[in-house]
Design a protein around this nucleic acid. Structure first.
Lengths: 245, 245
DNA sequence: CGACCGATTGACTATTTTCAAGTGGTGTGG
DNA sequence: CCACACCACTTGAAAATAGTCAATCGGTCG
């Protein structure tokens, strides 16, 4: 069950330096948020934070711990993962233009979020130019990522989608920590979820993974993944000519 | 050739009431923009306004006349249309977070845009809450549309993509003017462009169109399109069970 | 041990693309 | 005014790609 812990404590927030509050100096932070109605809420894996077309978009959220998937679904039950959120990400800002959320947010792991009423966020934006800039920048980043997703889904074939997904994963990981050479990446998504992210079936995902393991491009054990031969992967992904970025 | 006409004249702007300036009263409009460095620029069909990863994202744009396509492309030349802009749309706001544009904007028809330096836009946002709200709302709308695109491309099959594209077109048209019953919609996109928007080949698009014409669901003549049987279309698009929104 | 669940694999099918040929309309130059 | 080229679109046949269905594997948990 989801559980409201308490009012958020920014100073001890695990994503303090990655959140939209990162540019507010510690000295004025308490003062800034003292009238805000923030809540820290925990969710178990599988629980939804809000639902497409159902929940009122009164609050935005910051992910403090865990992973969350943003999904959209068709009436017949087909589900598309639109984006995967990591700690520090701001999400659920539909309220700036609409009454309800356009997508569903579901915890992929046990997760902890900070709920921030849009009204407070608006006040914050007006009083803190850095926060406003940070939010704008996140909007742009978000939009760009989603546009990139459109390119991935619309223009690439299965092997290309999968290969660039894996390579992107390794890039994201390389940024987050110092990594030398061969690294085990955590792969928090099941085959079904990878499929749902890339518009493929479980079987198709599984087949290419198996193929690439046999060819020695990747290794896998217990939801971690190792890229042995990135070049091989890239070539395998491209049928013939140059293809991936 | 693209051609800079002059400094923009908001009062006589054809999209005055649909632009982000719509909520600024006429009485203060001239005063508000007097120090801005806006330009009205015309483009011939096929010319690009800015290019993915090449042009510096110093300015945002408002489309005054014509149609523009936003595209992303792969190194091997495959192109994906991400969105089609209509008069009044604000675009090219990458500068709020990045140095360059993430996509290419190309005129689909002869077009006229108003260029607005991001610096001016920032000033405007700070001084006019309505404009700020309008921009936020457009960001959200944009993001939602792009997310919807991700669902279309990732979760639907060809016939479903095409059918919902046509039905969406008719909805957009119904909103813009009073229309009773059977209406001829303008279809400004070629088969190739529709394909590029939906992640399909020219031939696939052509085949379904032909099929639906034979079945009497749609009629077409000279880049206009008429929906005869929307229900038929919906059912044709859905293989079996319920599928479309 | 047995049930269960995610992943794998094979055989088959459906869908979509590719390649190729042909149609029809439009505009240009002789 | 006709011949011609050009272009977008259409259509057919074959091939590639991805999906479906079904059986199986392997690990985990009670």
């Amino acid at each position: 069950m989801s559980h409201i812990k308490c009012k958020g404590h920014c100073l001890t927030c695990p994503v303090r330096n990655r959140s939209i509050f990162s540019d507010i100096p510690e000295s004025t932070l308490e003062e800034t948020i003292k009238d805000f109605h923030t809540s820290v809420i925990t969710f178990e894996s599988g629980e939804s934070i809000f639902r497409q077309n159902e929940d009122s978009s009164e609050s935005a959220y910051t992910l403090r711990k865990g992973l969350i998937k943003i999904t959209k679904s068709l009436p017949d039950g087909r589900v598309q993962i639109v984006r995967v959120l990591v700690a520090g990400d701001l999400f659920g800002m539909d309220g700036f233009g609409y009454e309800n959320y356009n997508h569903t947010a579901t915890a992929l792991t046990d997760a902890e979020v900070c709920r921030l009423p849009l009204q407070d966020l608006t006040t914050l934006r007006q009083n803190h130019r850095e926060v406003d800039a940070s939010i704008m920048s996140r909007f742009v980043k978000n939009l760009r990522q989603t546009e990139n997703m459109v390119l991935e889904l619309g223009a690439k074939r299965a092997s290309e989608k999968l290969a660039s997904f894996i390579l992107r994963l390794s890039q994201a990981d390389n940024k987050s920590a110092l990594n030398n050479g061969d690294v085990w990446l955590s792969l928090p998504l099941s085959r079904a979820e990878i499929g749902s992210l890339l518009g493929l079936t479980i079987e198709t995902v599984s087949r290419f993974f198996s193929d690439w393991k046999r060819k020695g491009f990747i290794k896998e054990s217990k939801s971690t993944l190792q890229i042995i031969d990135a070049e091989g992967l890239k070539e395998a992904a491209c049928s013939e000519g140059s293809c991936d970025e």
